[in-house]
Design a protein around this nucleic acid. Structure first.
Lengths: 352, 352
DNA sequence: GTTAGCACTCAATCAAGGAGAGTGCTAACA
DNA sequence: TGTTAGCACTCTCCTTGATTGAGTGCTAAC
């Protein structure tokens, strides 16, 4: 038995209908709503075949049928060519909205997830880039008050990270400048992930070269290094988590609670996301997910890149019965927009 | 008819029981669980009186009784003396947890709401201080790349706000220093809320004094001023919104959705909070709230202060049937902790 | 003033009985 | 040989009615 043309037509009709209504689809519905030119009886036969082939299931003997994960997978693969070249109709506008209010990376991601969840009506997320690979360009200490200094870590990609330091005893302004200079000099070119290993060496070096050091500096140096090393946490932004409350499959509070708990637990969620492939676009349907909690969910993830290198992920999580076409094109468009914005604003400028 | 001692005892027993179980309380339950030395029949008579007096209602003729808002109000007022002096048992520990990871204001508030919602199991929020009244101490421009400059606005309270600026054409390093200096000089002492009015004057002044100006500066100055004026948005942090899904009164998804939508809409929620009084501790029970959406909720808010001046609010929102004792003492303790931390870290230092 | 007793009320639960949607099978038809 | 009409069958959902149980209010006795 093979998927002939008519079977495909029927299968797609069933999937479309189920995506729209979340209700098992019967043969009469199909023959009425979708013009296939055959009677319900014929459709019934075909549906029976499709069930044997694993594309459909019946929740109970006398109900209509529901697409299986295999059906969605077929559906998505079939759409693949169309999807690969698809763009969200409002891409340009989308990009503008995201970019407009995103002076900094943090805002960029917040805006992106917000828009993504608004457009899809599902839960969206972004895994922010880890800075492990980022190269340090400069360290700048800015005096704030007698006992407070703001440390700016300026990375090659023009990302600025900051840590507020508390001093036990004041350090004069010109000292701070000197310290900034010698810290910059010593740490220039190192990656963020190296700091943990090199910090002891740097502390020692600075200690020996009395010239640029001071008691105050020596006091805070270990603390300062530790703060830098801490910066590199894995960061996940999400939005629209409560959108699932609008879906009929979650109008049981317990189920909804389970989903929300899982997604709100950023660390476990982040772990999950790291297992998605490195391809531009990854679609994980239902039981293809390794987590039992997500066996009824699909995960659409796309990557965004800086200078052609994968640095993070963005995506949507929703019921397997999701509007793949729309979600995929939106995720793709937004990930592209992010890549564009990042490359424009944070790539290592040629002149430098 | 008056609230004699026995009536009070019975009322409290009913309230306590209802807070625990969210189920209408009957006379038998009371006589069994709370040792009052009288029979259910007597309690029934008293309950009937309490209903006449407006402290109780019956959802239907043959059910137990439920406390009214008036009853909660009585209960809270009665606890008042105890509450006023109450402190959370783990206050010191609490303060430590909050403080430890809170290098910056932003983190301070995030940690506070997180802990508050974890301890109370309800929804918590903080209204961050608006900076309107904050006085500018210094402006510092930090070069990041050829086309990017980070502007730091350092306020008298040692809060640092930042805006990333994009330049169309590069500005040399020493120029930036000069600009920083002259901006600082001209803006020193002004309040954030003044900026909108004075910005045109400053732009003009700087334009006239060719000495410190440059074409590049003149180009970005309006943009820069606009960015500063934008900084002062009202900011509300919240946490534990989905905790209500665990409450029996919200196991109807539609109701839960309504609540969540209301609270997630930060702007309308912030407006609501501004109407709470200026007292240290404000308790708004059920229909005492002006918003219909919150007629079944109580709002416990406390204020936090800097140098004795009210600068923000923190609180918890939950069902009228909330554990007032615990919630109030927790809110109070955390608001105190915030005040402490803020005063320690952000008050205007004497020596300056 | 307190309490035991009893009739009464009403939500919640459960079983039984359609109604309706949908299927699978069979036999007839093109 | 594929398609279709017809029909019996299945299973969920909804309604209805009966039952249960928690709780009340009233009355009369203590």
């Amino acid at each position: 038995m093979s998927l002939d043309k008519r079977k495909v037509k029927i299968l797609k009709a069933i999937i479309t209908s189920y995506i729209d209504n979340a209700e098992a689809v019967g043969s009469r519905t199909i023959s009425k709503k979708y013009e296939l030119g055959v009677s319900p009886a014929t459709i019934r036969n075909e549906m029976s075949d499709l069930e044997d082939m694993g594309y459909l299931v019946q929740p109970h003997t006398s109900s209509g049928r529901i697409p299986t994960d295999k059906a969605y997978r077929y559906y998505v693969n079939d759409l693949w060519e169309k999807i690969k070249s698809s763009r969200h109709p409002n891409l340009a506008q989308l990009r503008k909205i995201i970019e407009e209010k995103s002076n900094e990376l943090d805002e960029l991601f917040k805006n992106s997830v917000r828009i993504l969840s608004q457009f899809t009506r599902y839960t969206s997320f972004v895994v922010a880039p880890q800075l492990k690979q980022s190269v340090i360009k400069r360290i700048q200490l800015v005096p704030v008050s007698e006992h407070k200094v703001l440390m700016l870590i300026i990375l090659q990609a023009n990302i600025v990270k900051q840590v507020m330091l508390r001093l036990n005893s004041p350090i004069p302004f010109d000292q701070l400048e000197k310290i900034s200079a010698s810290l910059s000099e010593r740490m220039y070119g190192y990656k963020m992930e190296d700091i943990d290993t090199i910090k002891d060496t740097i502390i020692k070096e600075l200690y020996i070269s009395k010239e640029t050091s001071s008691d105050a500096l020596m006091e805070i140096l270990p603390y300062l290094m530790e703060q830098i090393a801490k910066l590199d946490d894995l960061n996940v932004y999400s939005d629209g988590i409560t959108n699932i409350l609008d879906l009929p499959e979650y109008n049981d509070v317990v189920k909804a609670r389970e989903f929300i708990s899982f997604v709100e637990d950023k660390s476990s969620f982040a772990k999950l996301l790291q297992h998605t492939g490195d391809s531009d676009l990854d679609i994980c349907i239902g039981s293809e997910n390794k987590h039992l909690e997500l066996k009824d969910c699909s995960l659409i993830t796309a990557t965004y890149k800086l200078n052609g290198k994968l640095i993070g992920r963005i995506g949507v999580i929703g019921p397997t019965r999701m509007d793949y076409d729309n979600v995929i094109s939106t995720v793709k468009s937004i990930s592209d927009a992010i890549s564009d914005i990042i490359n424009q604003n944070y790539s290592i400028e040629n002149k430098e």
